[in-house]
Nucleic acid binder design. Structure first.
Length: 410
RNA sequence: CGGAGUGUAGCGCAGCUGGUAGCGCGCUUCGUUUGGGACGAAGAGGUCCCCGGUCCGAAUCCGGGCACUCCGACCA
């Protein structure tokens, strides 16, 4: 699209002083988000594009896993939350009262909605296994939200839920879900560590968190460089830094700060019991299905990516989640800007064309700030050629249009 | 919720021993520029977070709120 059609058209040279973390500063300056209040953000067109790109990658992998996509409500009747005890025990649950004095909860998670939903359709072991997911906002009444979009009171999350006839079938799916998660984070350009953690209020069993190393994160982990062992020390305190890795016994555990971008829980029969969700097994007996839940923080992941990939000039998006494939800068004297733009579009390349009447310096600065992976410059200097430069590289080269296309399609 | 800090133009800030507000960037107009956030000239833009008090007079002093940021607690 033309940058003169982008909202907003301009970036900020300085970040608002309340923005202290890198993701907050860069996302606001470059025009991806605006803060409405502590922990609550508006996603502007660029930010929404990134959110949608991340969502789409997650969606593809969830579909691959066999998940059925739905969209569940944000506002829930209090009854569902009273049925599981969450109404009284979950401190972060936002509660609202209608003018007729009825109680409602804002979606803090969706077990209370999805379990009765699944119960309506699953009556026999023949209906299992089943997994349902959606990508939807969550509300949590945190005492203190912080760190830009890393910890909001309102945030976008993918949550998948699965039901199984027995523990063996669950365990099999659980393993596949973990692999799917690793694939997702890899596609997003991140390295996530599968981390042992407590089940929280969900479960007595151990759960697994997917942690990305970053000082902006809140989790304290210990990990092994030799194998993939990793543990959340906020939850589990039987290890300490320097201990020999309990898995490979070849290296010492190292401490690090990390951000939890995903998690998977074995919920057992907790929710199926709470909703009296009983089915018939192959012996004709009445049993509770085994349930699991699997979350990925979409908006938090966007923040983590910015924390991991930036430099002094701005964001450096991985190709898979960048708001555009190419940033075409038109400098004074360029004759081929419009034809390059149109031809790129014709080939299905998503290009942001900086057609604004600004100095070269401002365009370069904005381009670095916004962080699109490939920058193409056309100017009086380049003539019929195009200057190619990648955001994460210092080098640039002049190419013909066809050479540039070839390079893009790689 | 405990501790610390900050609220003045769109953004960043100065003014705070009381006398009705200023700087940089941005914005508008004109001109000159044009490969790393250009230059000159002329302009526009303000409930000084809110409420109350003291005073002839409050951005400034006093009291009470609210909001945001950071540390902590919390984050089924």
């Amino acid at each position: 699209m033309r940058q003169t059609d982008l909202f907003p058209k301009k970036t900020l040279r300085e970040a608002p002083k309340d923005a202290e973390t890198v993701n907050h500063q860069l996302l606001v300056r470059a025009g991806y988000v605006r803060q409405l209040m502590a922990g609550v953000y508006t996603y502007l067109p660029l930010g929404l594009k990134v959110l949608n790109k991340i969502s789409q990658i997650v969606r593809e992998e969830m579909d691959e896993l066999g998940g059925k996509e739905v969209l569940m409500p944000l506002m829930h009747p209090a009854l569902n939350w009273k049925q599981t005890g969450g109404w009284d025990h979950i401190d972060v649950l936002f509660k609202v009262k209608s003018r007729t004095k009825k109680d409602y909860a804002l979606a803090q998670s969706h077990e209370e909605v999805v379990t009765p939903l699944a119960k309506e359709f699953i009556h026999s072991y023949k209906d299992l296994p089943l997994s349902i997911y959606h990508i939807q906002w969550k509300f949590r009444d945190e005492l203190r939200s912080k760190s830009g979009i890393l910890r909001g009171r309102e945030f976008l999350m993918k949550d998948l839920y699965s039901w199984h006839i027995n523990q063996k079938d669950f365990d099999e799916f659980y393993g596949k879900a973990k692999l799917s998660y690793l694939k997702i984070f890899k596609r997003l350009g991140l390295t996530a560590k599968v981390t042992e953690a407590s089940g929280g209020g969900f479960s007595e069993k151990i759960s697994y968190e997917f942690e990305v190393l970053t000082d902006a994160g809140e989790a304290n982990i210990l990990f092994c460089d030799n194998c993939d062992f990793c543990v959340n020390t906020d939850d589990i305190d039987k290890y300490k830094a320097g201990d020999m890795c309990p898995r490979c016994k070849k290296d010492n555990l190292k401490p690090a700060k990390a951000s939890e971008v995903g998690n998977v829980f074995d919920l057992g029969e907790k929710y199926t019991r709470a909703f009296n969700f009983i089915i018939t097994n192959d012996k004709g007996a009445q049993v509770y299905p085994i349930m699991g839940c699997y979350g990925i923080g979409i908006s938090r992941t966007m923040g983590v990516i910015v924390e991991k990939f930036h430099d002094g000039r701005g964001i450096i998006w991985p190709k898979s989640v960048a708001p555009f494939d190419v940033h075409l800068l038109e400098l004074p004297g360029a004759k081929n800007a419009e034809s390059v733009y149109k031809n790129l579009k014709k080939l299905g390349i998503d290009v942001l064309w900086d057609d604004r009447d600004l100095s070269a310096g401002e365009k370069f600065a904005d381009s670095d700030l916004i962080g699109i992976p490939v920058r193409l410059v056309v100017s009086a200097k380049t003539g019929d050629e195009i200057e190619w430069k990648e955001r994460d590289s210092q080098k640039s080269e002049n190419l013909s249009f066809n050479e540039a296309i070839k390079k893009l399609q790689k």
